[in-house]
Amino acid sequence: MAFWHKQAKRMTSERIIQAAETLAGTPLDQQIKAVKENGFSEGEAHRLVALLPLAFSRPMLEELGIKHFVPVVTAVARDGTPIEAMLMRQPEYAIGLRVARNHRRKSILELDVYNSVAGGSSDTHAVSNALNAGASVVGATIASSLVGPDIAEHLIR
């Protein structure tokens, strides 16, 4: 007897762009549902919503002088257990970062899509607040934490 398993699609630049376009045009509270409706799995949807803004913000923040990014992201599981995961093990982050860097060189995305996704990053908000307060961010380090009850179970460890 043969068992057919739904093969997970490999994360690609094209799929990241598709997800970014979906995220940019969708209210935050509806993003996971919208991404899933566009063919992404539950785990991919959660990781895309949480991690694509981080990935898209990195090149911008580097251009502002941020020098170091902690390679681990933290989250809290439903039971309160702290979780750590390597960002580069998350395909949505790793490929998203590659797409974002490529966009900064070659403008491969619609500008409003890129700006909407990158602008959704808490890191972008933190740096913006620091700059507005007159602080220098040149040489700074950023560590990221993910907030929400569901993301921890979807991180790849």
Results as ranks from 00 to 15, higher is better:
residue 29 D to Y: 07
residue 29 D to I: 07
residue 29 D to G: 07
residue 30 Q to Y: 08
residue 30 Q to W: 03
residue 31 Q to S: 08
residue 33 K to Y: 08
residue 33 K to V: 11
residue 35 V to G: 00
residue 35 V to D: 02
residue 35 V to L: 02
residue 35 V to I: 14
residue 38 N to R: 11
residue 38 N to P: 05
residue 39 G to T: 00
residue 39 G to M: 01
residue 40 F to C: 04
residue 40 F to Y: 05
residue 42 E to R: 03
residue 42 E to H: 09
residue 43 G to H: 01
residue 44 E to C: 00
residue 44 E to A: 00
residue 44 E to G: 02
residue 45 A to Y: 02
residue 48 L to I: 09
residue 50 A to W: 00
residue 50 A to K: 00
residue 50 A to C: 07
residue 51 L to M: 04
residue 53 P to A: 08
residue 55 A to E: 00
residue 55 A to G: 04
residue 56 F to D: 02
residue 56 F to K: 01
residue 56 F to Y: 04
residue 57 S to C: 02
residue 57 S to W: 01
residue 58 R to I: 14
residue 58 R to F: 10
residue 59 P to T: 07
residue 60 M to P: 04
residue 61 L to A: 07
residue 62 E to K: 15
residue 63 E to P: 06
residue 64 L to W: 01
residue 64 L to M: 07
residue 65 G to E: 12
residue 65 G to P: 05
residue 67 K to P: 06
residue 67 K to I: 04
residue 68 H to S: 14
residue 68 H to M: 10
residue 68 H to D: 14
residue 70 V to M: 10
residue 70 V to Y: 15
residue 71 P to F: 11
residue 72 V to K: 09
residue 73 V to A: 06
residue 75 A to Q: 04
residue 76 V to E: 14
residue 76 V to Q: 15
residue 82 P to S: 13
residue 82 P to E: 13
residue 82 P to C: 12
residue 84 E to W: 08
residue 85 A to E: 09
residue 89 R to H: 13
residue 90 Q to Y: 11
residue 91 P to V: 02
residue 91 P to C: 10
residue 91 P to Y: 09
residue 92 E to I: 08
residue 92 E to F: 05
residue 94 A to K: 09
residue 94 A to R: 15
